[in-house]
Design a protein around this nucleic acid. Sequence first.
DNA 1: AGCACGCCGACT
DNA 2: GTCGGCGTGCTC
Length: 692
Amino acid sequence: MQSVVQVEPLTTARALRGPFDYVRPEGAEVGSLLEVPFGRQTLRAVVTALADSSPHELAVPRRVLPEAIPPELVALGLWMAREYCSTPARALSLMLPPSGVRAKAQLWAEPTAAGRDPGPEVRLTDNQRALLAALPRFAGTDLGALRRLEKRGLVTVAPRDRRRAPEHVAVGARRDPPVLNPEQEAAVHAIATAGPGERLLLHGVTGSGKTEVYLRAAEQTLRAGAGVIVLVPEIGLTPQMIARFVDRFGDTVAVLHSGLSQGERYDEWRRLRDGEARICVGPRSAVLAPLRGVGLVIVDEEHDGTYKHEGDPRYDARLVAQRRAELSGGVLVVGSATPRPESVHALRRIRLAHRADGARLPPVQIVDMRATAAGTVLHRRTHDALVDARKAIVLLNRRGWSNFLTCRSCGHTWECPQCDVTLVLHRAEGAMSCHHCGHREPVPRACPECASVSLARHGTGTERLEHELARIAPVVRLDAGVANPGEALQRFERADRAILVGTQVVAKGHDFADVDLGVVVDADGTLRFPDFRAEERTFSLVTQLAGRAGRGGRAGRVLVQTLDPDAPSIMHAVRHDSDGFLEGELQRRRALRYPPFATLIRIVCSSTEPGAAHAAAHAVRTAVDAAGGAGDGAMLLGPAPLFRLRGRERSQLVIKGPDRYAAIEAAGVAAAAVRAAKAHRTANLSVDVDPQ
DNA sequence: AGCACGCCGACT
DNA sequence: GTCGGCGTGCTC
Ligand SMILES: [Zn+2]
Ligand SMILES: [Zn+2]
């Protein structure tokens, strides 16, 4: 008789490997959350398995907590720990609701049989009759009056969990679902007839009605009795997708986004776990929602970088989504206008080639900046187009007023004391700020080296661009520095004439009618990062912006300012040729052995001790080599120095190997050895499988 | 990760 | 004598 539970105590310790055995308490199953004595401490622990016996002397858990997770999440957590070189405890911790929060109980009043319909012979005041008529409900401020009725046997008053429900932004009256076009019909049918564990890519141009396909697919899944998870990119705003799903499905939708209070988050978690809600919409962490029997996992805008979790375990929600669908026999659907080459390579593709409103995609035109003077922000042509436009979106991927400051007499530059990067000037705040660690200092009046007061500002960010564009039209700025992004978007939406200036956020997530011009100020900005995904990011950004222009009947166009007009990403974006772009990208990746033709693992070592980071990265390399490499055909790149961050020197080693599991195994073993070595005490190691 | 145990030098 | 430095090992 399975009288033993195997448990993972929830600690961040990496050296501590379970499972640990305890006496099985009443009601404990796989997925139960316990409080157990562990050494001299008391820890929460998740039951990962049951057993008949144990070679150890067993301790007795202190209690069974109410936040059990479904067994399928236990399996998913153990898989995540292995896949991302982490620990079961760290992975399982991500699946629990915020700790220290509980269900909120309030007193609930119900009429008894006698109180349900009291005849005129029962002596009651008007107030009491009104109170009885309004039951059942939470007692609230009428508790005194209700208690008196309770004494007379007319009412029962007892505690009951009260849901802290998040408020949803309404998107207008509930409309009848639109009629699907033939492409959408075919897509819905393909999803409905997909087999368990099947993976589909919905490759649809912007505005082709992917959301409606998701809604119909979700409806079918619900009708079949299974649950649905919908992942959306993390943007600082409430995703529009939430409103679309709530509008269609009401209370069976639970949301898990960063804007929720702890209490709301807890209650949404409980509703999913208890089966009261059967659809979960949210950013990457929603893939770990405690739904049972998931039949469909949707990943919208699957190219988006926010699906990667920064922090251990460094999971990729797209891969976890695939695994989750597989584990519960569900279907994975990822959608994008600019899918990743990885997805195109591995998934069955369904196309939506036409915009749902029948409109054509707006023309994308290159503005060649090579002939303009250095430091020019807007080309004459761009300027003129902005003057003519009614509503324009201008994208510049740099916050602040200017990039960096130098002294005109001695050349001094202002750098972050904690990081090896220049400080960015934010004029309105009167501050110089580090975008990597948050360090701030006042704007200098004079050079600390030579006392000169002649300081030069270099580069242009969104704050300065906002200032300059204000001469053309009213400007709304949207970037991470804006206090109320939702309000900014509404101002832009309502305006007759306006320019929306901002970083990537302006090209993501939000659809506006009537935008007739899109501008990418510095399209090479994303290309200048020495990164194998640079081309893909540029292509996606330009295409996504094109998708924002020319909706709602007005003809639109997009201007792309660039110093590199021949870059494949830009040329293909101009032709709206995502197939051509993807084909070239896959060829290049095959030739260079990049994903999906190999797995990349990035190991970053850091330390406050000079030289220790590099020494640790070197030791990882030696450890991998000593263990016979990272699988056939694997390569080690580095150690290569990274810029100092938060006072820590950094160095990285990259493993690139065609045998994914050999590479993961080698990285995990080598990192563990270096972490345990006394010589590398001060070094911190982070292992990132499938880095962005 | 905690937390205790233990073995050594420094100070009342 | 005893206070406290941290290296070592254990947690079902
Ligand atoms: Zn100077
Ligand atoms: Zn910094």
